[in-house]
Every structure is written in structure tokens, then in C-alpha cells.
Design a protein around this nucleic acid. Structure first.
Lengths: 145, 145
DNA sequence: TGTAGAAAGATGCATATGCAGATATTATGG
DNA sequence: CCATAATATCTGCATATGCATCTTTCTACA
């Protein structure tokens, strides 16, 4: 009998985590001139798409723990890119919005995002990139929890 | 002309990072009873496969910054699961090894890893999981940098 | 109406991540 | 042999990540 096979060959976690590190690195480098991390860029983009979102809902849509999101907002609020105000109907809820500066920062950083996205597309090819995106979407849907 | 389209729909970073968070969460929860994070489990597994590896080489194989790896080793060394000794031929290099306790911890935690892996397989289906793994492998190869 | 339970968010703690820069050691050219 | 460049690792800094737990606020029910 073979001894327990070493996991790396079949481990999905190893792969997706490696890919996440590498891809994040590429985006982070392209976004660095705009003083945004890929996390921060993603948050701003989400808030532009869904202004007034609460932390919990935003966290769920980003597959991120609400406490993580709460803290990730800190530097953005400190820099005045995101603002929050209490919900009129529910005192527990903080409604998040992009400030004009936040919107402007996002617009500027789009160039960096496009550069990163192009870099990925050039390396993978458009078809492979589409296939990867689709595979990740399916996985995210089935692993929703 | 449409205003700049919001990135989320086509952003590879958003997807792979979400997937990484979700998958890591699943593995972390299954490994928690064995007092290992998915990062730590991965490191131990790598070291079992490549005993005596140096930090730089290990970092590269894990697509991880060497400084990150250096710090990730800290808790494992503190707990006596990993040991390091200076290379005889090159005083800069620390050769890393699993201690007997490290090997034992890895063996025990394999049950948690298998549980996480099964959970993913059950949610995705074996074929989809294989396809996702293959897509990630191709992406990692093409994005190697 | 008053109180138990649920829900939203924040904090404490520990690990994870990578860049810039410092240090120690080795390799290279002269 | 010595000065310089290259390499391996570590430190300081800032952000990222999630669990357990706490506080505040709302909801439901008796």
C-alpha cells in the first residue's frame, strides 16, 4: 500500500491560493501608482455600483467576512474616499457611499486596472481567460455559503 | 459612448480572490481541530515533499514572497514543527526540515484536508473540480513571473 | 409593554501578504 | 587579495483575513 499521497497534486486550495497571490500581485503593482490596492479598488468599484450598501451586504457580495470588510474600509474612510452615515430606519446600519474624491480616485485608477487586466489577457489569451473566469464563477456559485 | 464600464463583470482578480477566500475558509475550518491553518498545512506538505529546501526556493514554488514565507515559518518553528539549520556550503541559506512532531502533525491533519477536499468535490462535482484545477494550473504556468 | 432573542457592526487577537530597505554572506573582476 | 556586485534572509511598515466576543439596536412574543 502506498503511504498517504502528498496532497499538492490534487489540492484545490493550493492552486487557487497561489493564483490569488499571483494575480493580486499583478493588480497591486499596476494600481500602486494610483495609491490603491486591489482590495481597495474592488471596494470602491462595488460601492460605485451599489451606493448606500450596508457593510453586511457588501461583505456577502464580496465573499468576505464582515469584520474584514469593516477594517478594510478604515483606510478608505481615513483618506476621505468613502463615507458612511447611519440609516434613518435602522440605527445599527451604516450606509456606505463613495465621496467625490473616492469616485475620482476610482476613475483615475481604472487605467491601472485595465493595464493589469490586459496583462492577464496577454498571458492567458482571451479564450483561456474567459474559460477561467467562467470556471471561477461556477465554483463560487456552488460553494456559496 | 458608454461611461467606463464597471469592472466587476470582467475582473479576474475579483473572481480569483473571492474563490481564494471561500476555499481558504473551508480548508481552515476543517483544519482548525488540528491546530493548523491552510497556509501552515501547505507549508508542512511542501517540506515533506522537499526536505532541506531553502526559503527562497520554497517561496518560489509556493508563489509567495520570500519575506512572507519567512514570517509564515515563525509559528511553525516556535511550535517545533519545522526546524532550520545553516547550509554548510552557504552561510546565507537556512535549510528547512520537518521535525518528527511536524511530520506527525501533518499526518494527523490529513484527515481534515481530505474532508475539505471532499467538501469541494461534493459541491463542484469531480469533473468540474478537475477542470477548475487544470484551468488554474494553466493560468499559473502562463503567469509565472 | 417588557424582555428574550436576533441582527449589525466593532474590537481583540493571531496569522497572512508583500514592498522597501538593512544585514550578512558569497561570487566576480581587477 | 580587495572592492563591488549579486544573493539569501530578515525587519519595519501597512494592509488583509477571519474567529470569538462585545455592544448597540431592533424584532417578536408573552
Amino acid at each position: 500500500m502506498a503511504s498517504s499521497p502528498p496532497p499538492p497534486d490534487v489540492c484545490t486550495a493550493a492552486r487557487v491560493r497561489k493564483a490569488s497571490r499571483r494575480v493580486s500581485q499583478i493588480y497591486d503593482r499596476e494600481l500602486e501608482p494610483y495609491d490603491l490596492t486591489v482590495t481597495q479598488f474592488g471596494l470602491l468599484a462595488q460601492l460605485r455600483a451599489a451606493p448606500g450598501a450596508a457593510i453586511g451586504a457588501l461583505a456577502e457580495s464580496m465573499v468576505m467576512d464582515a469584520t474584514t470588510l469593516s477594517r478594510n474600509l478604515r483606510p478608505l474612510e481615513r483618506r476621505g474616499l468613502v463615507s458612511a452615515e447611519a440609516d434613518r430606519d435602522d440605527g445599527r446600519v451604516r450606509k456606505l457611499k463613495l465621496t467625490p474624491q473616492g469616485r475620482a480616485a476610482l476613475e483615475r485608477a481604472m487605467a491601472g486596472w485595465r493595464a493589469a487586466q490586459s496583462q492577464i489577457a496577454a498571458a492567458l489569451g482571451a479564450d483561456e481567460m474567459k474559460a477561467l473566469n467562467a470556471a471561477l464563477d461556477r465554483a463560487l456559485e456552488r460553494l456559496a455559503g
